[in-house]
């Protein structure tokens, strides 16, 4: 999953970025509202973590502008703990509200919960044919046996599980697999697809020439 962290405090931003990346998220960051809005509008994020009190454009305004064009889930992460602020944030279109100080575990749980809600699969375990993915433990099972996956492989598998039987373009997958700091060559994607095929069956991921890949675990 690909998330955007908009936070003006440099240290907090760095720690959040590191933590979410360590948890397998593909995370980009922005240090102020302007940059955040630009990134949110120009890339497709699965989720945006948004601070409210920021220079240039504040969180409220950013949320309003995002909601004019996009449905990307937004979690407000802010020091404003008043009920009025929470109500305002949620009513303005935020999906969740997290008050600082928070623990990273909780933030991750909220990120996962919001993603499940978007993907319409409230259960933490995703099932497709013989493949089971526990999104909390970040563990995949094939025919009831656990499968060793690298973080990238898992991220790709989870993305395929959420988007079963959908054609995913190479750009989409690429965007959601690598963050802005990754400098990978474009054929890395083929390598990961190859590895997943070798672990879950050759036909689980099919190539649609010129369009992208489709995950069809049942075939």
């Amino acid at each position: 999953m690909k998330i955007l962290i908009v936070e003006d405090n440099q240290r907090l931003r760095r720690s959040m970025l590191e933590y979410t990346r360590a948890e397998g998220c593909v995370a980009d960051s922005a240090s102020d509202g302007e940059e955040g809005l630009y990134k949110a509008m120009n890339w497709d994020y699965d989720l945006i973590l948004l601070d409210v009190m920021m220079p240039k454009i504040d969180g409220w305004e950013m949320l309003r502008q995002i909601r004019e064009q996009k449905d990307t889930p937004v979690i407000l992460v802010t020091a404003r703990d008043q009920i009025d602020d929470r109500v305002r944030g949620l009513d303005d279109g935020a999906d969740d509200y997290l008050v600082k100080p928070f623990e990273m575990r909780e933030l991750m749980a909220r990120i996962r919960a919001n993603l499940r809600r978007v993907e319409n699969s409230p259960k933490p375990c995703l099932k497709a044919g013989d493949i089971v993915v526990n999104t909390v433990k970040r563990q995949a099972y094939f025919k009831d046996e656990s499968v060793e996956l690298t973080a990238r492989e898992y991220t790709l598998l989870e993305m395929f599980m959420y988007k079963q039987n959908e054609v995913l373009s190479r750009e989409y997958i690429y965007d959601h697999l690598f963050d802005e700091s990754d400098e990978t060559v474009s054929n890395m994607l083929e390598v990961y697809v190859y590895k997943l095929r070798s672990k879950f069956g050759k036909d689980s991921i099919q190539t649609r020439r010129g369009l992208g890949y489709v995950f069809m675990p049942d075939s």
Binding site: N9, L12, M16, A22, D81, P101, E103
Partner: peptide, 21 residues
């Protein structure tokens, strides 16, 4: 005061969470 103290506490928490991984 509570507002101003929230951000540094978040920083500390996030750093600790990271270090404890």
């Amino acid at each position: 005061a509570s507002h101003e103290l929230r951000t540094p506490v978040s920083v500390i928490l996030a750093d600790c969470d990271l270090a404890l991984r």
